[in-house]
């Protein structure tokens, strides 16, 4: 049954989302960091460092989703990694979000549950000083500081990619934290969104930031969608990337799926991809056998727990074979 994804500030699924997030953070996988460390090359950035006690403490389901993200982004591809900085960005996150949606459906016993999205371009229309006080933050905890109250006040996470040395650590269970507007003052706005959706090219050689003019490069956030002349460039990043940087705190490093806002952001990005496909066609590039390895239409996408899928298999979330979800509303 295809479920219907709605805006987090309006959909009744928002509360189920918060309940599911907390439940997954309290549900043990019985998988320890030590076991995960034995499953992959020692030099990988997905290796978990911790005290002996924390290495043997099982991770929660929420933590395991976080580790999956680090695992994918620490696996190299012909350009970027196996989840970012290339055409794979959109299909990999579509698969990843759907698995969380299914896990929340399972843990809350709500088969009709659908992930909510955060329409951040709407908040980007607000004055900068009002953006950190938009309605979403009264629902999901403050945009600055540790989240100690509200529907995810009980959320505890353990993984943290520490960029003082680049390692992934497991700590004792802790609260998430945010640091909004420290690096960039504003969210993307409607003009950014419209110009991104207007680009009819999904992706193109050289498939990477600043050497590609494409919808994917704009929506991921390495290309300014306004395409200004060099003398009038705005500081980046843009779109999806800018949302991560704007929220900051736990949203900054590779362990960003710790923060439920990660999922609200990516659900909106997926919604923009869906809007783009309805406008320009359900196409993907590069095709099989062309372009960067690990990002082509028939290359397997990095997955744990659930079987891998290929980009070509996830282009239509409403098709009979998937019957995953649709959106209540797409941008014009």
């Amino acid at each position: 049954m295809a479920v219907v994804r709605g805006n987090v500030v309006a959909t009744p699924h928002a509360q189920t989302f918060f309940d599911g997030v907390v439940a997954l953070s309290q549900q043990s996988t019985q998988v320890t960091p030590t076991q995960l460390n034995q499953s992959r090359p020692a030099g990988s950035a997905a290796r978990i460092f911790a005290t002996a006690a924390e290495l043997d403490r099982p991770l929660s389901w929420w933590d395991l989703f976080c580790w999956w993200h680090v695992r994918a982004m620490s696996t190299p591809a012909g350009t970027g990694n196996r989840a970012h900085r290339g055409p794979i960005f959109l299909p990999w996150h579509r698969m990843y979000l759907r698995r969380l949606e299914e896990a929340i459906q399972t843990v809350t016993d709500r088969d009709d549950f659908a992930l909510p999205y955060w329409d951040w371009a709407a908040d980007g229309e607000l004055a900068p000083q009002a953006q950190a006080n938009a309605p979403v933050w009264s629902m999901i905890g403050p945009a600055r500081g540790q989240v100690t109250q509200g529907p995810i006040g009980q959320l505890r996470v353990r993984l943290f990619q520490d960029n003082s040395d680049g390692r992934l650590y497991a700590t004792a269970p802790r609260r998430i934290w945010r640091d909004a507007q420290r690096s960039v003052p504003t969210l993307p706005d409607r003009n950014d969104e419209a110009l991104t959706l207007a680009d009819a090219t999904y992706d193109a050689p050289e498939w990477r930031e600043q050497r590609t003019d494409s919808f994917r490069n704009k929506v991921e956030g390495f290309q300014d969608p306004t395409e200004p002349p060099p003398t009038d460039r705005r500081p980046g990043p843009w779109m999806h990337n800018r949302v991560h940087v704007w929220v900051a705190g736990d949203m900054a490093p590779g362990s960003s799926p710790n923060d439920p806002v990660f999922w609200l952001n990516h659900c909106n990005v997926d919604r923009l991809w869906e809007a783009w496909m309805q406008r320009h066609g359900r196409t993907y590039a590069p095709p099989a056998g062309q372009g960067p390895a690990g990002q082509r239409a028939n290359d397997p996408m990095v997955s744990i727990v659930w079987p891998s899928m290929r980009p070509a298999e996830v282009l239509d979330p409403t098709e009979a074979g998937l019957d995953w979800y649709r959106y209540d509303q797409l941008p014009n």
Binding site: V31, A77, T79, P292, D299, V302, S303, I304, V305, P307
Partner: peptide, 17 residues
């Protein structure tokens, strides 16, 4: 997942570009 020794699926390694 455990029966597969916690291995990731679709993990073929490619060289960075």
């Amino acid at each position: 997942f455990a029966s597969g020794d916690y291995a990731a699926d679709g993990i073929e390694h490619y060289h960075g570009g």
